[in-house]
């Protein structure tokens, strides 16, 4: 019996011995390992909006590696959209992804030919989306169907978003383009990250003086603006409204909210992955920046007026 007790005690002591090799904490271990490279834009955003930068990387991954449109079409659309707004970084990303998908530079240029309907659509979406006619859209819809067309619109909307970030941040294309990150960030990661504190918003007291508006919007002042909104209310949707059962993956509360907003209903119904990744980035930014809503929606109004988007 004594021998048995001694054996158990010895075994317990043996288990309590230090590990043969030190096992550092997770964060320490990561310092010693080569982390995957991050693109310049993500590094720039991470200094102010670290959690948003993570969501943007996930969104970027979706569009570049697992787009419902396929890698080849996604790269072609991005190339034309970035070319239209002179985003060299955006074009470099598209060329990198096109090469990985087996698409040559010549094929990209051929797609951008104004005679190619989808290439012409992509260019118009980048430069003046309001100028796309119902007839142009209908002819593409007959070929591609609503699901793909909504996906194409979201891919080009993402390009419009991302190219503006790249151009405003002044990011130059990397000598060796950075491949998609290929990872997601879990809740623990987000919990451990702190967002830098913001400066107080400046005093918004008016300063009498000359106006600094830099446009001529006289064409729509007075009564014409409400007319444009009324016209937009009567517009027929260019794709059929997706049936409600397409939103079966959502909770009841989310579905009810989504059904009220045409933007969300069409996007979630036809392209839930693209829409979900976009909303995740957008919601993260809103939570992280906590910026005054009157101020941001005033900027939204100016952007919609500039784009002549009356929705």
């Amino acid at each position: 019996m004594r021998a048995l007790v001694a054996f158990v005690l010895f075994s317990s002591l043996a288990l309590a011995e230090p590990p043969r090799f030190p096992v550092p904490a997770n964060a320490e271990a990561w310092k010693a390992l080569p982390n995957p490279p991050l693109p310049a834009w993500a590094r720039a955003v991470s200094a102010s909006l670290p959690k948003t930068a993570a969501k943007m990387l996930e969104l970027d991954d979706l569009h570049r590696t697992s787009s419902p449109l396929g890698k080849a079409l996604a790269a072609k659309l991005r190339w034309v959209a970035s070319d239209a707004v002179s985003s060299r970084f955006g074009k470099a990303i598209a060329e990198f992804d096109a090469k990985a998908a087996g698409i040559s530079k010549e094929q990209l240029e051929a797609f951008a030919d104004p005679k190619v309907p989808l290439g012409a659509f992509a260019r118009k979406m980048a430069l003046a989306a309001d100028s796309i006619t119902d007839a142009e859209f209908k002819s593409l819809l007959e070929v591609h169907g609503p699901e793909t067309m909504v996906g194409i619109v979201h891919a080009l909307a993402y390009a419009g978003f991302h190219d503006r970030m790249l151009l405003a941040l002044g990011c130059e294309p990397e000598k060796d383009p950075v491949p998609p990150l290929g990872r997601t960030f879990d809740a623990k990661w987000y919990d451990a990250i702190a967002t830098p504190a913001r400066d107080k918003m400046p005093d918004r007291t008016a300063v009498p003086g000359p106006s600094t508006a830099t446009f001529d919007w006289k064409d729509l002042t007075g009564k014409k603006m409400p007319d444009e909104l009324a016209t937009q209310r009567k517009r027929p949707l260019r794709v059929p409204l997706p049936p409600e059962d397409k939103l079966a993956f959502m909770t009841e509360a989310s579905r009810a909210r989504t059904l009220k907003i045409v933007w969300s209903h069409v996007s979630q119904g036809y392209q839930p992955k693209m829409t979900g990744a976009w909303f995740a980035a957008m919601n993260q930014m809103q939570a992280e920046a906590k910026i005054d809503q009157v101020f941001t929606n005033t900027l939204f109004w100016i952007a919609t007026r500039t784009n002549r988007c009356f929705y």
Binding site: F137, V153, R235, N307, R308
Partner: peptide, 17 residues
């Protein structure tokens, strides 16, 4: 940049307000 995502979807699909 976010606003420009939203408006492209609104304009591209001409969503009724």
């Amino acid at each position: 940049s976010w606003c420009n995502y939203m408006t492209r979807v609104g304009d591209g699909l001409q969503l009724p307000l």
